[in-house]
Design a protein around this nucleic acid. Structure first.
Lengths: 330, 330
DNA sequence: ACTTTTTGGGTAATCGATTAACCAACAAAG
DNA sequence: CTTTGTTGGTTAATCGATTACCCAAAAAGT
């Protein structure tokens, strides 16, 4: 049951393995005649080229690594899917690396990927800074949704600032004056930008920033619930919540339900991401839509281009966001 | 910037590459002395073994492929995560293959994986029958949550029959008599078993099966919504819904909300899977919990054992399920 | 008719590891 | 003093491709 090698095919066709290789790769010269003969034998014997051997020789594995904080989060899963949908038709396979936001794991994965000979890496890192040990010096790398501040790395991200701005402005226009923002306690770039958008919108409409209304949490539904409960029990007045993540919004909604606070009558809510929970929560959540498919697709496209050295695509990409209105606002 | 090879390390240490290899793999004989020397040089030069070359020689890639219908579905994502969490510490990387339930894609992935030299495959296939072209003849394979009826393949699954049974019985015990079941129109094994559990529970309690109450849909939230709307507009009376998936349950809830039908007062609902939407829907969804982590973990464990030929683990695994009561029932 | 070019394809080195086969040196045993 | 074993290695083949270099035969040019 030993596998059919290129050498055996060559033998069967009465040519050298070099010729077979040339035919398979459309390189070098050969007659149409031998090509047909060889291809037929290849079909007959169901020959498949051994990608491992090919990789060793060519130093290209047609494989990329995707490093992701939490594949279980629909937002990331959507991006991974988009990356896959672009990469697979182009002949690439993808290694999935789930870091659970663990820096050590992340470093380990990078070394692993490097050792396994991937051609490039896409980061959806939870880290502010991409670790020095990153493969970036050796391998093409692109970051999604996280700006590591490293000039060398191409970044694809949503226009988080605008997202924060339009969400906040929408709430203001609906008459809200005391708008809570719930955001990641870590100072990662997307959150920082959304927060900036929030502040700018307040300022534009002459609403002073109230520090009591900005709550920092670990990004997790229950943390959001607790935070809002705390806000309520502390007696802090508010008439709207801008949650920097749909899941945080869901957590907030839970807390409001518990206190019988009516949404959107008493408190309006806007989330961020537009993942499917937003659509099916109660009430359905108004949220800022990120184009997850495009995020992944473009990142993959750029990476593959870098790998093929088509063009030194160095400029960063910022994708527009949009507000999708549902029932947690008017 | 050429990479450091084992040969260079050997040269630097004044030994042959064979010795270095033996030291790295803890095989054969060498003195403690040379070991120290070699290891130091390896550290100094930050040598990493070229896994591709190793794979070529040993015909083991320390890589497995996971074929999944939809990584975007939290249920599958949870399983993938569990597989990863077991595999990575054991030195394996995982290729993710998203089929979108497409049979052709599935076949293609199998060929791809085979060509890339994976050591084994885990299927979370949407297919009833695993395609003949599967790698199963050549590669260790295990199936999760889908029984392909192929005796050769190890299957890890939940006790779907019991799940269907306890869900239905719970509804009956809460006084429901006209229980709708919403299930996959395709006759895949987990659904068939849940349906069997449903029927058995009805029978046990002397409730006749009403064909009007069994609705088959494409597994999708909106399909469930439409189906329930249709049921209502058709005037079919019912006092409970057993949805074979949490997402289907969410869809059903949406339809009930639209018709101002009170949950659980007028209609009780139980879902299946216990993914996070179930926890955060309104009302929070009573559902049958599948142990997604264990599902993935055990599958990975069995696969790796098969790869290492530790034991010809041929028996199938059926994991228990449990009812988690929330607010769509009493 | 003789040179030059093109066509078709072979030879063998190479990628970076692993490993079977072999061997020198020294120790222990008889 | 020879035999046998053990220790600590070395050499070279091998895994399955790709590819630089070479070459014979045919075609084209002059």
């Amino acid at each position: 049951m030993s596998n059919i090698t290129i050498k055996k095919i060559a033998e069967l066709a009465g040519v050298s393995s070099a010729t077979v290789s040339r035919i398979l790769n459309n390189t070098g010269r050969y007659s149409e005649e031998t090509k047909e003969r060889v291809l037929e034998i290849i079909r007959d014997y169901n020959y498949r080229t051994n990608v491992v051997a090919k990789s060793l020789r060519t130093n290209k594995s047609k494989t990329i690594g995707v490093i992701v904080p939490d594949i279980t989060n629909e937002f990331f899963a959507n991006i991974v899917l988009a990356i896959e949908n672009y990469s697979v038709p182009n002949g690439y396979s993808i290694f999935i690396c789930n870091t659970s936001e663990d820096h050590e794991k992340e470093k380990m994965f990078v070394r692993d990927l490097e050792a396994k000979g991937v051609d490039g890496i896409i980061y959806l890192s939870g880290n502010k800074q991409i670790p020095e040990q990153t493969t970036s010096k050796h391998l093409p790398t692109v970051c999604i949704d996280r700006n590591p501040g490293n000039k060398e790395i191409v970044v694809v991200e949503s226009d988080n600032f605008s997202g924060g701005f339009i969400a906040t402005e929408e709430l203001i226009q609906q008459g809200c004056k005391r708008i809570v923002i719930i955001k990641d306690e870590r100072d990662v770039s997307p959150m920082a930008e959304r927060y900036r958008g929030y502040r700018e919108a307040l300022q534009k409409h002459g609403i002073p920033l109230d520090e009591n209304l900005v709550v920092n949490v670990k990004v997790d539904v229950h943390e959001a619930t607790k935070a809002v409960q705390h806000l309520i029990s502390r007696g802090t007045a508010f008439d709207a919540i801008f949650a920097c993540t749909d899941w945080l919004a869901i957590g907030a909604i839970n807390a409001l339900h518990q206190h019988q606070i009516l949404i959107p009558d008493e408190v309006k809510i806007i989330g961020f991401d537009n993942i499917s929970v937003a659509q099916h929560s109660y009430p359905p959540l108004t949220t800022v839509e990120q184009d997850k498919t495009k995020l992944g697709e473009i990142a993959a496209q750029i990476l593959l281009d870098m790998i093929d050295q088509k063009k030194p695509q160095k400029q960063n990409i910022v994708l527009p966001v949009s507000l999708v209105k549902r029932n947690t606002t008017l």
